[in-house]
Design a protein around this nucleic acid. Structure first.
Lengths: 195, 195
DNA sequence: GTTTCACTGTAACGACCGTTATACTACAAG
DNA sequence: CTTGTAGTATAACGGTCGTTACAGTGAAAC
């Protein structure tokens, strides 16, 4: 019982670590199994296919990210700080994520060929779900913060959010999170309703 | 003579198109050769290896990008506009680049495993060269625009630049370039020396 | 003690990968 | 006419990929 769950998570850990340090396509299932200390057959019994494993890794990652974000929002004082909490969340998330080097969703979008319009790709759907989730949440927080144009603020913050992630992916100089926070404050300052 | 150059560019075109629409690892050299209307042997006679082909694709891409950027800077009027010209360049570059969907350098960084510290990886060196080039140029332009803290402005613009590229890579809503330009103006407005 | 279940090791499959060897054609230059 | 060059077609190499079949082990459940 508990054994099965434990195995699952060990496989997910190994896959997350290898996929996004070495590249998804470049990482074979055998290496994932070896890293997890598990037989390949076990991996397939649990996940069925490499694609499904990737899907579950991303789903777990998305869940974890939302948790960090929620915590950061809850910890913030003012509505403005709640809006900016997304950058605190990036920092705490990265600190907790361990050896994974970059944004899993960005990497997946890069490696994956555009899906055939016939068959809906579950992995791609997850990617879109991620973007949508972040956008909606930012819009909601911007509205709570009484921003003049909440949608524009949300889009701009999404832009900065993406900028931070890709800056971390490449070896960008200086601290992208701090820069983004400052830029966000400047943008919000212009469009905030004077209270 | 002219034939050889023509073949080279046809291969480079095909590689660029396939690598960054389908993924680098996911694209085989045979498909590149087929797309270029060229025998595989010819490809290897010209480029030696897939890695070298990728390297030359990226180098050409970097050259082309610099050309667009220079043109945009030259077309701008004020020093402030010259600083913001990077966003115009993204638009004209994307319009001219054709079917390639996303930032080649971002995609390469995602797919490629971190290089062994022993052997220097020529492809990775190109990626770093790209980041360095953009950063330096932005710093230079920020200095010419009499910004108060040119390095901070340059870093922030690099952040927005990366944000635009990754937003385009994922299917970000709304127009990231326009948003980035507005955000950049807002940031520069705060740190610009009042003339 | 037998059954059940999670897991293991080995081996193989068909497919595709990057790369190279061999031998052949077309064309331009000397 | 000869020579060299750029390109072609075919086939194969060793390797790795995702995936599965087969047979077996250890421990908990009844």
């Amino acid at each position: 019982m508990a054994r099965r769950q434990d195995t699952r998570e060990r496989i997910l850990d190994a896959a997350e670590s290898l996929f996004f340090q070495q590249g998804i396509t470049a990482t074979g299932v055998d290496r994932v199994a070896a890293e997890a200390g598990v037989a390949i057959v076990t991996l397939y019994k649990q996940f069925g296919s490499k694609d499904n494993l990737l899907r579950e890794v991303l789903a777990r990652r998305l869940d974890s990210w939302c948790g960090h974000w929620n915590a950061a929002v809850a910890a913030a004082g003012s509505p403005q700080d709640r809006l900016l909490a997304v950058f605190d969340a990036i920092e705490s998330f990265r600190a907790a994520a361990g050896p994974v080097q970059w944004c899993c969703f960005l990497a997946t979008a890069s490696e994956r060929p555009s899906p055939e319009d016939g068959q809906p790709d579950p992995v791609f759907e997850l990617l879109e779900q991620d973007t949508l989730l972040v956008t909606d949440r930012l819009g909601e927080l911007a509205r709570e913060a009484q921003c003049q144009d909440p949608d524009a603020v949300a889009s701009t913050l999404l832009l900065l959010y993406n900028g931070v992630l890709s800056s971390l992916l490449r070896g960008a100089p200086s601290d992208p999170v701090a820069l983004a926070r400052r830029a966000a404050r400047s943008v919000i300052g212009y469009t905030l309703q004077p209270s």
